[in-house]
Design a protein around this nucleic acid. Structure first.
Lengths: 132, 132
DNA sequence: CTTCATGGATTACAGATGTAAGCGTTACGC
DNA sequence: GCGTAACGCTTACATCTGTAATCCATGAAG
């Protein structure tokens, strides 16, 4: 499962990508609306600039639909998540998974439901695919 | 437990900070050595530039010791880790902890030891401090 | 037809980042 | 004493980022 090469996506660009991954294709205005739902300070012009940049980077594609563009992702969210996660893990925790997990578990109150869910994940992991 | 204000630390700067948090105070050359142990392509001049920038940002302090400087962190690693972690979580997982943990658990093979350790963490978390 | 609103294209611009090279001073080896 | 290696200080510079504003073409409204 080699990770595809994905363009580098900046902090702000991530917000735009997430808006599009959520539902696509999406017009610029749809994207802007979604962004503003989360953060009303988003300026339309700024969003447009980022869309253009993401196209240039190869992260997004677009087609004319009527009088305007609709955008769609050209890179899979899962791939970008994988790349960003590895980068974060290396950078902040020196690549050590366990301390990182410990940090997050300790830093947030998880609901009972989430704890159970997570433990289930660990159980599954422990059961199957264990080599050693 | 309010998080202190920490300067923004870039990707590359993190490597430098981690080298210093590991053991300090440390001279520029010590830092460079540590960096090169991990990645031999580190150029001394580049490292020096970053040290200077980190001082300017207020992330590092230094004192003259003999003929050269020794640097020490002015920001706690834990604080920087907390800030970077929250930022990452928001950016990549929209702030949802559980999917993020699921991703990491699924993406890496954890050792039996690590699994147990993690489950113990979850148990502790479940036991104490649960509000709802 | 003419005007205006709308959306894409182009331009702006400062600050952050990655990656160093060059300059100047000075303690140390000869 | 004198040249040289070491260090810190200053400068370089192309990109990337964040954040928009302006320009331009065209379809829609009147």
């Amino acid at each position: 499962m080699k990770t595809k090469i994905v363009p580098r996506i900046s902090e702000t660009e991530w917000e735009v990508m997430r808006a599009i991954w959520a539902r696509h294709p999406a017009s610029a205005n749809e994207v802007i609306e979604r962004l503003q739902e989360v953060d009303p300070t988003w300026h339309p012009k700024t969003a447009k600039t980022l869309l253009t940049r993401l196209v240039k980077k190869g992260a997004l594609g677009f087609e004319m639909e009527g009088r305007s563009y609709v955008y769609r992702p050209l890179v899979a969210e899962a791939d970008c998540v994988a790349v960003a996660s590895t980068s974060f893990l290396d950078r902040v925790f020196g690549g050590s998974l366990q301390p990182m997990l410990a940090h997050f578990v300790a830093s947030r109150r998880l609901t009972r439901r989430e704890l159970d869910e997570l433990k289930r994940l660990l159980e599954d992991d422990a059961q199957k695919g264990r080599k050693s």
